[in-house]
Design a binder for these strands. Structure first.
Lengths: 155, 155
DNA sequence: CTCGCTGCAAAAAATTTGCACATTG
DNA sequence: CAATGTGCAAATTTTTTGCAGCGAG
């Protein structure tokens, strides 16, 4: 498998190795298309749709079918390696390597589209879930999206 | 305009009159298709996709084009009368008639699909937003989805 | 009566499926 | 070499657009 071209391994390389390790641990094969998708996600601070990922890879000289992107995104999603961002209707790399029990917030910048993950403290998470539980709801996990402007767009 | 058949006005009628009032106040016309969509949303405790709404209306003897459902959903969304539910990829009636500054949580039952709105207390909302702000993010609004089992599915 | 809204037709975009072939481990 | 995963072709499904005509106010 050649991984030495199309979508360079940059500063966010942490996600790539983490994702590959998780896939391997779960019994999935490490293939070129998977590496390319992971790399595209790792390189983007924004959330990407299947077609956006396909374009990124293609424009970087890589070759992949959109169908594969869809299938790979499904796999990554089931392995907790990507999160679907509702407002942008795309997928963002889940960079938190430690266990997050549905407590990651996504800060989505409406100006530049950057998606930042932020761990919601245990206390806030629990209080919010307890609030839901007071109504008799058996809360299992939650997803928080915050819209606004990111640090660099504000200044 | 005939509103006396197809999708009866039931117990959740509050949403219908509220929605119609809001539309009227915003200068939109009250049309049969709009009433039908609003009624379908009001009658469902679950979130509905455009096609699901179309089916509901059609099966109840009503007549509407899916294209209109899309356009009406857009209008309702811009007027804050429906919320897009990420996990279900559908729309749910926003039954809160008072101002909620992005503080409504959605409790989505993974078993029966029911979507319940729950106001997140001011304190919890502010603390969560402040948490995001500490990172330099200018938080404007937020959306919380909680997954689990609703009261009736638990018991 | 007039402008907004709907329906119809059609196009465009997004997502899924089946199967032969290529690739990983 | 034995699955597993990919690409290709094609079918489905979802969403958008243009325009003529209906109907709410």
């Amino acid at each position: 498998m050649r991984t030495d071209e199309a979508l360079p391994t940059g500063p966010s390389e942490g996600f790539e190795s983490h994702a590959l390790a998780v896939l391997k641990a779960r019994g999935f094969r490490i293939t070129t298309p998977r590496v390319l998708v992971i790399r595209a996600l790792a390189a983007s601070s924004r959330s990407l749709t299947a077609y956006a990922i396909h374009d990124e890879i293609t424009q970087a000289g890589g070759k992949i079918d959109v169908v594969s992107v869809y299938r790979i995104l499904t796999t990554l999603g089931e392995s907790g390696l990507v999160h679907r961002i509702g407002v942008t209707d795309g997928f963002a790399a889940c960079r938190q390597t430690h266990e997050h029990h549905g407590t990651v917030q996504h800060l989505v910048c409406s100006e530049c589209g950057t998606v930042t993950e932020l761990e919601l403290g245990e206390r806030l998470r629990d209080e919010t879930l307890d609030h839901a539980r007071e109504t008799g709801f058996e809360a299992r996990e939650m997803h928080v999206e915050v819209l606004g402007r990111c640090r660099s767009c504000v200044s």
